[in-house]
């Protein structure tokens, strides 16, 4: 198997050009990418039109795989991640009153907020306050004061680590001591660098944990360290799983023809990946577990694995 790589400068129109080039000049038989949902949405129609299977490692927006029957993903979707967030609050923290602070400009954040509300209410919990901020804000005291007056037992903050870390600091300054809960947007060593002590006792859901005791994870982590001298992050693990699921499908299909590989991808069942046991459902989404991490003194400690219900 040979890999052709193109850069898209994180621009949607460049993603469209790069994908067109890969398909027509390099004659690739399948596409691994893009990372973000917006660029995946730009690339997906082109892969679909050319019958080239595309597997996004980390685009969590539900609409990506709805583009067409050649578009797959190996990460979980926002609705599932929000369910995990709700279960952290309800089952691990055992709280009944939660506040939400989300990033109104970010679809990822708004999506998690919507589905969290739905699931948490479904469990019987109560959302006591909902506040929002905009990506790039640095002062969250007004929203946090409002939240404090509602007396929540936990706060769900489905944002990215830069804002989340500042939110945690300012919450502690205002005397809010309840734990914060978040999603995979928190996953960065910078989270602790900015937030520090304020994040102790907070929880977030993620794709995998380097501390997961399962042998598949431990082998991947040690191999990766040997090769790149770095600890692999969630994106590395997801990219690895995407490539392995693709090669597995090609082996089972016995050909690299687009439609055959697509059918084989659809047949992916209980695939042992680094990021969990992966089954591709008929909506071409990955049905797979999420891990729950607890932040303690700068370390993201592995707590438990949450398996998807139903489907």
């Amino acid at each position: 198997m040979r890999v052709a790589v193109e850069d898209d400068q994180s621009k949607p129109e460049e993603a469209a050009t790069a994908v067109t080039k890969l398909i027509n000049q390099n004659h690739v038989v399948a596409m691994l990418g893009e990372v973000s949902s917006s660029r995946s949405l730009a690339a997906a129609p082109i892969c679909q039109a050319n019958n080239v299977p595309m597997i996004s490692p980390s685009s969590t927006n539900p609409r990506v795989t709805q583009v067409g029957d050649y578009i797959f993903r190996v990460c979980f979707t926002d609705p599932f991640q929000a369910e995990v967030g709700a279960r952290i609050a309800w089952e691990i923290l055992k709280v009944k009153k939660v506040a939400i602070l989300s990033d109104v400009r970010n679809d990822y954040s708004v999506g998690l907020q919507t589905f969290f509300r739905q699931h948490f209410k479904g469990f019987g919990g109560e959302i006591v306050a909902e506040q929002s901020y905009s990506e790039g804000d640095s002062d969250f005291r007004a929203q946090l004061t409002q939240i404090k007056s509602a007396n929540p037992e936990a706060i769900y903050v489905p944002g990215y680590y830069t804002e989340v870390a500042t939110i945690a600091r300012q919450a502690r300054e205002l005397g809010i001591s309840v734990p914060l809960i978040g999603g995979d947007g928190w996953d960065s060593p910078r989270l602790w660098e900015i937030g520090g002590e304020a994040l102790n006792g907070c929880y977030f859901s993620n794709h995998y944990s380097v501390d997961d005791p399962s042998p598949a994870v431990q082998k991947f982590v040690s191999d990766y360290k040997k090769r790149y001298n770095q600890t692999p992050d969630a994106l590395a693990a997801l990219g690895y799983d995407a490539a392995r699921i693709l090669s597995d499908a090609m082996k089972r299909a016995g050909t690299t023809r687009g439609d055959k590989v697509r059918d084989a991808l659809l047949g992916t069942k209980d695939f042992q990946g680094v990021t969990g046991t992966i089954t591709i459902n008929k909506e071409r989404n990955a049905v797979k577990p999420a891990v729950v991490l607890k932040i303690e003194n700068g370390k993201f400690n592995y707590m438990t694995t949450v398996k998807p219900t139903g489907t």
Binding site: S38, L41, A42, P45, R63, R105, N106, D107, Y108, V110
Partner: peptide, 17 residues
């Protein structure tokens, strides 16, 4: 740009697909 980002009818932060 920011204005369009906040209009849900054209996809907002998801983009218009």
């Amino acid at each position: 740009r920011v204005f369009i980002l906040n209009i849900d009818a054209v996809g907002g932060a998801r983009g218009f697909s």
